[in-house]
């Protein structure tokens, strides 16, 4: 499903963020991505979503070489991905429902089906009764769950989450991990970056560790 083949990435003027990284993630697998901060976890996820392009090697998603995609093809790649990124923006000019609706509007779903899907997604993250309020009024944990709802409403086959439990207390973090496990159970492919060792020990999933931009054994 996701294949990194000798991938390296260097930001202009900086040290290499990733060097010679290779791994495979099979369809339906749940994988944790760990490493100290600055190890290249975010960069790795951005390469999958074509937010960044590799300087060497190739990133394949569903057999497509993401690094070589034309700009016009990138939207169609991203519609297949659920992205839960750090510091990501909820839109505070619209309510919870409309925030989750946005991906469906982009794909051109009709009104009735969209409404059903939005409510189903909000139900999964436990925000169904908050659909009318502005996301600014939500707590940090609720905002994170709203981001997850927005990422899954489109039923993507791959879910990428960058530190989804950062800045959350243990109880919220546990809830969010449970949401991810539920997705894993229905067959989604998940790649979750975290530095929270406790989550990983609980998990039954494979771990990919990065150290200074290289795979640690």
């Amino acid at each position: 499903m996701i294949r990194f083949d000798h991938v390296s990435k260097r930001y202009p003027g900086g040290h290499p963020a990733l060097s010679d990284v290779s791994f495979d993630i099979a369809e339906g697998e749940m994988v944790f991505l760990t490493g100290h901060s600055g190890a290249g976890k975010s960069t790795l996820l951005k390469l999958i979503a074509a937010i960044e392009r590799p300087n060497g090697g190739s990133v394949l998603v569903n057999g497509q070489n993401v690094g070589a995609l034309k700009p016009a093809a990138i939207p169609y790649l991203r519609r297949n991905l659920g992205l839960i990124f750090q510091g990501q923006k909820l839109l505070f000019d619209r309510n919870v429902f409309d925030n989750v609706l946005l991906p469906l509007q982009i794909c051109g779903f009709n009104h009735r089906e969209s409404a059903q899907r939005v409510r189903a997604a909000l139900d999964k993250v436990g925000l169904l009764n908050r659909e009318k309020i502005n996301p600014i009024a939500l707590s940090g944990g609720e905002q994170q769950r709203l981001c997850i709802a927005r990422a899954i409403v489109n039923r993507p086959s791959i879910l990428l989450a960058d530190e989804p439990t950062a800045n959350l207390d243990a109880e919220y973090a546990g809830e969010i991990m449970n949401i991810f496990r539920a997705f894993h159970q229905v067959g989604s492919t998940l790649l979750i970056s975290t530095h929270d060792e406790s989550l990983i020990r609980q998990g039954d999933a494979r771990t990919i560790s990065l150290k200074h931009g290289e795979l640690a054994a």
């Binding site: 979503a49 937010i51 016009a72 790649l77 991906p103 982009i106 927005r150 489109n154």
Partner: peptide, 16 residues
Amino acid sequence: RDEIEVAKLIGASSSF
């Protein structure tokens, strides 16, 4: 700007 960034991130085509 925020809305445009989010829309691009979740796969909006440039014509959208």
